[in-house]
Design a protein around this nucleic acid. Structure first.
Lengths: 222, 222
DNA sequence: ACAGTGCTCGACCAATCGGTCAATATCGGA
DNA sequence: TCCGATATTGACCGATTGGTCGAGCACTGT
């Protein structure tokens, strides 16, 4: 069945793993993460995988199924990766610092996965599988909300804000940093484009202590 | 030349404006905002515009040029729209509140433009015209940074944070909200998915006053 | 050595792609 | 009314698309 290993297939000495199916999935993941669905041809995938186009159809019934498989795998990997960023040890403020740092690092470590999944969220024309993308979302989100609620009930955080709103703010800061990094980089007054850790440290610090000096609190008009 | 107006061209009674070129641009904008470049065929654009495919090539030399024209127009419209969100009247905190609200509303009012431009930023495979996208970025960014710096020098805001970082945080919060709205909506604990004004009000309030109660400031360990 | 089974491939298919072209329709100015 | 210029079109092009097919290849169990 699928047990054969160690054979030399293409011209690359890579050939270990699940051979065949995995090879195709890897090639497709690479290409689909750079270009959109219609911009990637089955021929290109076959070429990248070092096999024939017809061979792909032995493992996948059609292009959509292959794309779906890639998306499912990427979504699962990303989900696991991001969930590991949350661990509820120590003070809430430290947990937040740790989470922000690890979460952003996870995004930056596997940009292909993030782009792949995120494109699926943004593309309104062909909703292929938002479910995959959304489930990872809910995981991290609820974990983060739980942390914030714990902080509130323990008195470490204010109680007059919506935890879900803060979670959105924090996740958004990281995702936005990830997406806009290239633009931020060559924009002069920005110094943190290549320092994700510093970015998150600053973000969390602002979130915790606020922008207004502690002395004047009720000066704002509305 | 281009002066002819009021004629009935297709089967739709729309026919006013610059006729022809504008008609094509509008059709292309609509389609390109939903689906990616390769997913939109010239045939589909012609169909949407109610003209023949060959006619498009009378106004645009090729598909890339058409896409570029659409992108340029969308980028300029969006740029103008977003710049209007910043006006430096009144106290800094009020300016921030006003900006956040107007900025997000602008995004939500013209989602096609945002998706069009933002996709161009995200797609790493074919950098067609990041310049267009980036210039609008720089505008809003620098304006926002200026506001924050003014607030700092006037003593209305802390001086120990990076204005560019806060600007990123605020813009990121809005963009993230725009992008993830559909997901946020059907996620139970979130109540602000359909209340952008409330979302921004909450965001700004948190940014200004921080998450930590004013009583305890230096309890965090590091 | 044989048969069975999955794996792999080149050749091929209809459909669609972006793009061209020559012919026609429609116009404003003389 | 005629003319030159612009608008608009259907028919057509080669190339590429996703997908199929049948014939070989490589392997395992007997």
């Amino acid at each position: 069945m699928l047990g054969a290993e160690g054979r030399i297939v293409g011209d690359l000495p890579l050939a270990i793993e699940g051979e065949g199916r995995q090879r195709i999935l890897a090639a497709a993941e690479k290409l689909f993460s750079d270009k959109a669905f219609d911009a990637v041809s089955m021929n290109a995938i076959a070429l990248q995988a070092g096999i024939s186009k017809a061979n792909i159809y032995h493992y996948f019934p059609n292009k959509d199924a292959l794309y779906l498989a890639v998306l499912r795998a990427a979504s699962q990997s990303l989900r696991k990766l991001l969930n590991d960023a949350v661990d509820a040890h120590g003070a809430v403020v430290d947990v937040l610092r740790h989470f922000a740092r690890c979460h952003l690092q996870a995004l930056l470590d596997r940009p292909e996965l993030v782009r792949l999944v995120w494109r699926e969220i943004l593309e309104k024309g062909a909703p292929r599988a938002q479910e995959f993308a959304e489930q990872g979302f809910a995981d991290v989100f609820s974990a983060l909300v739980a942390v914030l609620e714990a902080g509130q009930s323990r008195g470490e955080l204010r109680v007059d804000f919506d935890p879900a709103l803060v979670a959105t703010l924090l996740l958004g800061a990281n995702v936005f940093f990830f997406q806009s990094r290239d633009i931020l980089r060559h924009y002069p007054p920005i110094t943190f484009a290549d320092d994700p850790a510093g970015y998150d440290a600053g973000i969390v610090e602002i979130l915790l202590r606020g922008l207004i000096p502690e002395s004047s609190i009720d000066t704002a008009s509305t």
